[in-house]
Nucleic acid binder design. Structure first.
Lengths: 141, 141
DNA sequence: TTCCTTATTGCAACTTTTGGCAATAATATG
DNA sequence: CATATTATTGCCAAAAGTTGCAATAAGGAA
């Protein structure tokens, strides 16, 4: 299934329009797999849509996140990166070497439930980033 | 104990210097209690140290976080806020009305342990922000 | 296909954050 | 107390991100 076929209906269902800019940005996120900074998204999507501006990239990433097609994540720099919305997961990043790994949401499930019952809040999406030392960097420490 | 008495030794112990700028910023964080944006910190600290620049505020907040005297947190906007380092805690924020509450780290303890044993990483500090719907906003939904 | 509505984009100005470098000032030492 | 060392700051300019508004174009209706 092409990106257009996959994502256009999702936008339409919410009353929004598919545009060449949005499609190019979704395409970049979809095929990169990982998380990208707005600048990286711009750099790549720009090739497909020459007139594309960085303003539009920022607005579109925010828009896609707002509508569940992309997920924003903080990777420790104070700046947001984005990835295509797939299975729910979190990140674990090494403070020393920067190596990252994904953390399945299943691992946090029971903690989420405890948090819901204690707080009364109904938890929705939260992309979490944990920091620590990877096995390798623990040795040298 | 004054801010100077409390924080100066902590910096000295690490080979750093206490300055009027750092003291003013620590004072602001210490007495505000909650988390503040760099702009808010600047606005207040500026009153004590007229020559203070925003550049210094950014650098100092980063420096304090790096050295464990302050903690950075993401509150969903893509921008960092800072609070004075106290007991370890996390935040839970309502997507609808913005109401926030603190989450004790104790509640996440066993999840942290599970995460460490599964990943091999040794977890260090991570300020987490969870998002959800507060009890009030669940009704109206 | 053509027209109409309005969501979306590009542009330009603006705010926020970062980085390089010379001047300043905190602290150790004589 | 005076001097030397160098961490820290301020200044300036650049990079990153945001906002308002007029022009454009997606998609429904005729």
């Amino acid at each position: 299934m092409s990106c257009a076929e996959e994502y256009t209906p999702k936008l339409r269902a919410r009353g929004y329009r598919m545009t060449s800019q949005r499609l190019a940005i979704l395409h970049v996120l979809h095929h990169s797999g990982g998380h990208l900074s707005p600048a990286e998204v711009y750099e790549q999507a720009h090739l497909q849509v020459p007139g594309l501006t960085e303003t539009t990239v920022y607005r579109t990433l925010d828009f896609l996140a707002e509508n569940g097609l992309a997920r924003p994540a903080h990777m420790g720099s104070g700046r947001l990166v984005y990835e295509i919305a797939r299975h729910e997961h979190h990140h674990l990043k090494c403070r020393t070497c920067g190596t990252e790994m994904e953390v399945e949401h299943a691992l946090l499930k029971s903690m989420y439930q405890k948090l819901e019952s204690e707080s009364g809040y109904k938890l929705t999406d939260s992309h979490l980033t944990f920091f620590g030392l990877c096995p390798n960097c623990q040795k040298g420490d």
